[in-house]
Amino acid sequence: MNTPAATGAPPQPRSLESAFEDTIARDQRVEPRDWMPDGYRKTLIRQIAQHAHSEIIGMQPEGEWITRAPSLRRKAILFAKVQDEAGHGLYLYSAAETLGADRVDLTEWLIEGRQKYSSIFNYPTRTFADVGVIGWFVDGAAICNQVPLCRSSYGPYGRAMVRVCKEESFHQRQGYELLLTMMRGTEEQRAMVQDAVDRWWWPSLMMFGPPDDNSPNSARSMAWRIKRHTNDELRQRFVDMTVPQAEKLGVTLPDPELRWNEERGHHDFGTPDWDELKRVISGDGPCNAERIARRRAAHEEGAWVREAATAHAAKQAARASEGAAA
């Protein structure tokens, strides 16, 4: 983005704003040093931070199964996935920091409950099939949400999403492959898969957020090209993508209203329980308290380690400057 600042003349607010609007209109990228409206900056910090928090909290439901994974191959896959998620959290916090946020504050806001994370991670992983269903549904929904974000108007966010999406699609395939293996297995394994599908379907549809007529931030985010599609568009895309996969797998999706609509060229489906979503995002889901408590405990119990690293780095720096002075 070229700003008038490059000419040396003191920039006028009006020209800055029009340059920003122009960048957005031409579908170009806004970069950290560019001028941007406060609202744009704040919206992005909130969205990117909440995305980062989701990656970090999202390590918990699957991390639950690392020590119980039923084969060494699955255990390795889980380790790699949880490691990737921590890495995604790190990219995203870095992207948020390019906007002037500080990771220390963002972490604080997460454990104080002042910033949110994806509603889906407030549901418990009750059986090993949940691990596969999380890969299939939750990572699948994340991909629907995130692939368009690779073209987000904010450069650092878009670039982070490119890396995140590559790894997410790998996780999704692994999740689905676990379910395929289980469906070819014993009666109990098949029942376990169906049960997990029944429990995760609706919460996964809710990951796309409230319906469009009740989504306060959507219009502005779309105008700024932070978002590319509405919640309902993405939800529809997810349903259309997932139904044939469910058929191939041999499971049913727990929605009596789900059917192909020839006219629309899409699947019709029932209405998620929006009251449930409201409860979960306001803190009253099945695992909200545990997730935050665990994050807080890791942070607080790790304080002495971070303090040690800081103190050691200061000592090293002092020694280096003494060495240089001598």
Binding site: I56, M59, Q60, G63, I66, F79, V82, A86, G89, L90, Y93, R294, R295, A297, A298, E301, G302, A303, V305, R306, A309
Partner: peptide
């Protein structure tokens, strides 16, 4: 997993 003192 999920308990480390820093994300790194």
């Amino acid at each position: 997993a999920g308990h480390a003192p820093v994300l790194e």
